[in-house]
Design a protein around this nucleic acid. Structure first.
Lengths: 142, 142
DNA sequence: ATATTTTAGTTGTACATGCAACTAATTGGC
DNA sequence: GCCAATTAGTTGCATGTACAACTAAAATAT
C-alpha cells in the first residue's frame, strides 16, 4: 500500500512521536500527581519567582489562553500564587510548589533514563537538539 | 534562569515542534476544508479500499476511539463509507473521497515545501527519518 | 491631555486525543 | 458443541490545546 506519504511527513512523524513520548512522560509523572506540563510550569515558576504569565507561555511554547488555565489549576492546588501588577500577572511558587520541585526533577530524570534506554543516550541527545533547532527555525522564519 | 531542563527533554521538544508544525499543516490544508489527519485518513482509505478500522488506527498511530470519531466525521461528510463485516468494520472511499485525494496530495506537497524552505531539504529528511525510527523503537521496546 | 494603538490576560467555544467501561463477534480449549 | 478468553469497535468522560472575542492597562501619537 502507498503510505510513504505518512512516514515522509514531518507533521505526522513529529506528532506520532509526541503521542508516544507523552504517554511515557505521563506514566513517569503519575506518582507526582501532576502532568508533565504542570510540573514543568511549576519548575519554571520556582526558578524565577515573580515571572509573568507572558514569559511562561513563551518558555513553554503554548498559547496564553492555555497558560491561563494551567495557572488556574496550579493555583487551585496551591502550587503557585498570582499577584496582579497592572496589566501583567506575576506568578510565585507557594511553599508546597517549592517543595515539589525535587520530586519533579526526579520524575524528569526517570523519563530521560527511560527513553535513553531505548534510543541510546547519544541518539536521544542528537534528536532533542535537532528538534530544538528546528522549532527555533520555524518560529523565527514563521 | 534554569530552563535547560525544558530544552533537554525529548517530551517537551517533540511536542513543541508538534504544535508548531500542526499549525503550519492546518494552514496549508485549510483550503481543502479538512484537517491534515482527516486528509491522511482519506488517502489511506482511498489507497486501500476496504481497510479495517484497526489497521487505520495502527497506521495513523492513534487510539481506536479516536479513529472511530474521525471515521464518524468523514462518513457524515460523505468522504468514506463503513461496511460492517462481523466484528470488524471495513472502510471504503466514496466518489467524493476519491476525488479529494489529489487535492490532499497537493496540500501535502505545499506543507512539505514550506518546512523544507525553512529547515532545508536534507535536514528535514534527516529529522523525519530520526523521528520515524525513534517512534518505531519506542513502540517496539514500549 | 486626550485619543489611538498596543499589550497582557481571560473566557467561550471547539477539537484532538486517550482511557475505561461497555457490547458484540470470533476464536480456542475442553 | 459450549464456555472462556480474546478482539474490534463504540461511547462517556476527561484533558490539552488553540482561536476569536473580549476587558483592562499601558504606551504612543497628536
Amino acid at each position: 500500500m502507498d503510505e510513504a506519504f505518512l512516514h515522509d511527513c514531518l507533521f505526522f512523524t513529529t506528532n506520532r512521536l509526541g503521542r508516544l513520548i507523552t504517554k511515557i512522560a505521563e506514566e513517569e509523572f503519575a506518582s507526582t500527581g501532576f502532568s508533565p506540563m504542570y510540573a514543568y510550569l511549576t519548575r519554571l515558576v520556582a526558578s524565577s519567582p515573580g515571572i509573568s504569565q507572558k514569559e511562561l507561555a513563551e518558555k513553554l511554547a503554548i498559547a496564553p489562553s492555555t497558560l491561563t488555565r494551567f495557572v488556574d489549576k496550579l493555583e487551585m492546588k496551591q502550587m503557585v500564587e498570582r499577584r496582579v501588577q497592572g496589566k501583567t500577572v506575576l506568578v510565585y511558587p507557594t511553599d508546597r510548589g517549592a517543595d515539589m520541585v525535587e520530586t519533579f526533577r526526579e520524575a524528569s530524570n526517570r523519563l530521560q533514563e527511560r527513553y535513553e534506554a531505548v534510543l541510546g543516550k547519544d541518539a536521544a541527545d542528537h534528536l532533542t537538539t535537532l528538534l530544538e533547532e528546528s522549532s527555533d527555525a520555524l518560529e523565527r522564519k514563521h
